[in-house]
Nucleic acid binder design. Structure first.
Length: 359
DNA sequence: AACAGGTTCAACCGCGTGTTC
DNA sequence: TGAACACGCGGTTGAACCTGT
């Protein structure tokens, strides 16, 4: 027994809307509003359309102040930042861009932005592969390994993983794996590289940056996250664990990872749940606009990607990867209490977490 | 000019969630 | 309390359009 259809499919028109239909719908809503019932609306105005279709048409096209196309650089940055932070929550992302609809942003992402970002990653990887691959080296990662890895993840998670790796590789190619104890087997050369990096940076903890803790802590109380806080890290959940992390699934103990637990996403929990977007901006600029850092803060991408690639799991073990501590409460986020400006402009709470977050 | 392949985007579909009774 | 209903969301589809040959 399936779900009852929302309307009589046989008597409902589908496909593109005619100007007459648009005019009818627009005139009615502007005069009377939706009446709080989209299902009944088409009957009221004599449209042979499904109520859901009317709603979609109004929200995505007829509603006043809707913008189509012509996304600005700033909008690109916001979309990318939020996508990387919260994934494909298009309605939430759209809420941060006045005049944009979730559908529009979704289309824009899928057709343009994603290619723009992932394309660069691919390019870099290809260059790396061509220049560095040694067919005689049994430890070298293989394409099939990558494929296996990729296939185990949802597309969205994989995209976010790729994007995240891209951005991360710009800033610190090693912080991605923020706890050496959790890494899979490391090739001797990689180990040597780590030691060199630590020595050259004079920072023995370079590779042991803490993950974002399950609950916000004052900056001065940040500490290395223990494995028990992240069961996905230490056990053999492998890809499933990673995918779950990517998708922001709550811990199995049912605890609320961020915020005060009342599910209202105030600015505090927002800041905790969404990654430090502000810290993305420079990196996003580099990726989206081919900008070269004037401060030298962001190393050359290819170089860094190459270094990052060195840390791919060379033995095919997919366990122990975790880098997405965000647990985003979509339910809360969809409410009006989710204040994005604090996300995008915050310089207080985020900075606290930037220290703890392996970006 | 004609065709093929690629891209874009409006619209549809199914499902999860909230609300009402 | 739970069933029925409506809403909203994200994924997917397919027609229209674009571009290269």
């Amino acid at each position: 027994m399936g779900r009852a259809p929302c309307c009589d499919k046989a008597n409902v028109k589908k496909g593109p809307w005619s100007p007459e239909e648009d005019a009818k719908l627009k005139a009615y809503i502007e005069q009377y509003g939706t009446g709080g019932n989209w299902i009944a609306l088409p009957q009221k105005i004599g449209l042979k359309r499904c109520g859901k279709s009317c709603r979609l048409r109004w929200l995505n096209y007829l509603r006043p102040n809707i913008k189509h196309g012509g996304f600005s650089e700033e909008e690109d940055n916001i979309i990318c930042s939020l996508y990387i932070s919260i994934g494909s929550r298009w309605s939430i992302i759209a809420a941060q861009l006045p005049g944009r609809t979730d559908n529009d942003i979704k289309n824009y992402w899928n057709t343009k932005l994603k290619k723009k970002l992932l394309g660069r990653r691919k390019q870099s990887s290809n260059i790396h592969t061509l220049s560095n691959q040694d067919p005689n080296d049994p430890h070298q990662p293989t394409g099939s390994d990558d494929n296996q890895f990729s296939q185990g993840l949802s597309n969205s998670a994989m995209e976010r993983l790729q994007l995240h790796m891209q951005l991360q590789s710009l800033q610190n190619p090693f912080s991605f794996y923020n706890n050496p104890a959790l890494w899979p087997k490391i090739h001797p050369l990689q180990e040597k590289m780590i030691l060199n990096m630590q020595a050259s940076n004079g920072n023995p903890n370079l590779l042991v940056q803490p993950l974002l803790p399950p609950n916000p802590q004052p900056a001065n109380e940040q500490s290395t996250v223990h494995q028990q806080d992240y069961p996905e890290i230490s056990n053999t959940k492998g890809l499933e664990g990673l995918d779950n992390c990517l998708d922001g699934i709550s811990p199995s103990d049912g605890s609320v990872p961020f915020g005060n637990g009342d599910n209202l996403m105030d600015s505090t929990s927002t800041a905790a749940a969404v990654q430090p977007v502000s810290s993305f901006q420079g990196q996003l600029d580099v990726f989206l606009n081919n900008k070269t850092s004037t401060t030298g803060e962001y190393p050359q991408e290819d170089q860094m990607v190459n270094q990052l690639d060195c840390f791919r799991d060379i033995n095919g073990s997919k366990d122990s990867l975790i880098w997405w501590p965000t647990d985003f409460d979509a339910k809360s986020a969809s409410s009006n209490s989710w204040d994005s400006t604090s996300v995008l402009q915050s310089n207080g709470m985020f900075q606290d977490f930037e220290l703890g977050y392996p970006m």
